[in-house]
Amino acid sequence: MLLQNKVCIVTGATRGIGLAIARFFAAQGAWVFVNGRDSQRVNDVVAELQSAGGRADAFVCDVADPNSVKLAYKEFLTKSKTIDVLVNNAGILDDALIGMVTPAQIERTFSINTYAVLYMSQYAARIMAKAKSGSIINLTSIIGTNGNSGQAVYGGSKAAVIGITKSLAKELAASHIRVNAIAPGFIDTDMARSIPPAVFDTRVASVAMKRIGTPEEIAGVAAFLGSDLSAYVTGQIIGVDGGMLI
């Protein structure tokens, strides 16, 4: 198995891409710490993974709140002294034309999509550095690499994740911690289904493979980046988008 006995934290793991990653990681032998804000939903996912024969624990916190993150890591350290893989997946999508963007929307989007990556990585990097090993996987987006109308806030928050990824890759390489990002295209999640049907169809038409991607297809690449198969890969932004043009 790709991730046998690897200790992995997956943020935003109660649905969508994060849930698919948590399931696949557990199936690949990982000990998965499931993150979410809602303890009931987190515990449901933990129970699901365990009933499928996997090893899982809860990592309940609001990743956008540094104090909440700190407390969650303290709790985590009572269960495990090491982290092999951190997947910074938690994110929100809240589109608006620039003239209608509110300060609260900017703050909330950047808090969850961007600041949280720094808060979570800060502690993970310290723990990984002690073992001189680890892999941090950040979820950016094709909107972060290419931009899109009506998505200045989301695109900005995801472009920042690319800067964080490349900078951390350089800073942490000496500690043998790899840092990479996945840039999904149009993926079949609640987030994608929240857009109007006409926009949905236009998005699918823009994909060279003419279909929406699945969360499992992101999970596969995340498993590669978390595993030793990618031992010499760092600072990379891997598009998983079916040849989407935007």
Binding site: K70, Y73, K74, L77, Q122, R126, A129, K130
Partner: peptide, 15 residues
């Protein structure tokens, strides 16, 4: 140094 202190005293220092 921080890592050494954390290991030696079995603590996790705040940022």
């Amino acid at each position: 140094l921080i890592a050494a202190l954390e290991d030696a005293f079995e603590i996790m220092l705040d940022t």
